[in-house]
C-alpha cells in the first residue's frame, strides 16, 4: 500500500482539499477540448495522439487526436485537441 505523504495526511486530518497541501497533481478538464494540468514535473512524451506528463510519483497520459500544448511553464501545462481518454500510470 502506498505510504501517504505528511502533507497529504495533514490535508486529510484537517479536511482540506488535497492539492492545497502542494505537490499533488491537479487536473481540470473542459469538455473534450482542453486539459489543464497543475503541479506537473515535465512532459515525457509529446505527439498529436498522446501527451504523457510526469507527476513526480507517476504519469498522466492524455489520449486523443490533434493534441497540442497550448502553453506551458514550470507548474502548469495546458493541452488542447480532441481528447478521448486520460490514463494514470505508475
Amino acid at each position: 500500500m502506498e505510504r501517504k505523504s505528511i502533507l497529504r495526511r495533514a490535508a486529510d486530518a484537517f479536511d482540506i482539499p488535497a492539492d492545497v497541501g502542494g505537490g499533488i497533481l491537479h487536473i481540470e478538464i473542459s469538455g473534450r477540448q482542453e486539459v489543464f494540468v497543475e503541479n506537473h514535473k515535465g512532459i515525457l512524451m509529446l505527439s498529436e495522439e498522446e501527451v504523457e506528463i510526469s507527476s513526480g510519483r507517476g504519469t498522466v497520459t492524455v489520449f486523443g487526436t490533434k493534441l497540442s500544448v497550448l502553453a506551458m511553464n514550470t507548474e502548469e501545462v495546458r493541452i488542447s485537441g480532441e481528447i478521448e481518454s486520460i490514463r494514470f500510470g505508475e
Binding site: 497550448l70 502553453a71 511553464n73
Partner: peptide, 21 residues
C-alpha cells in the same frame, strides 16, 4: 528528445505556446 527541451524551458521560466508536432 524535444520534450526535454520543453521541460527545461518550463523549469527555466521560459514560457511558450502554440506547440505543433
Amino acid at each position: 528528445y524535444p520534450e526535454r527541451f520543453f521541460n527545461l524551458c518550463a523549469r527555466n521560466g521560459i514560457g511558450f505556446w502554440e506547440v505543433e508536432d
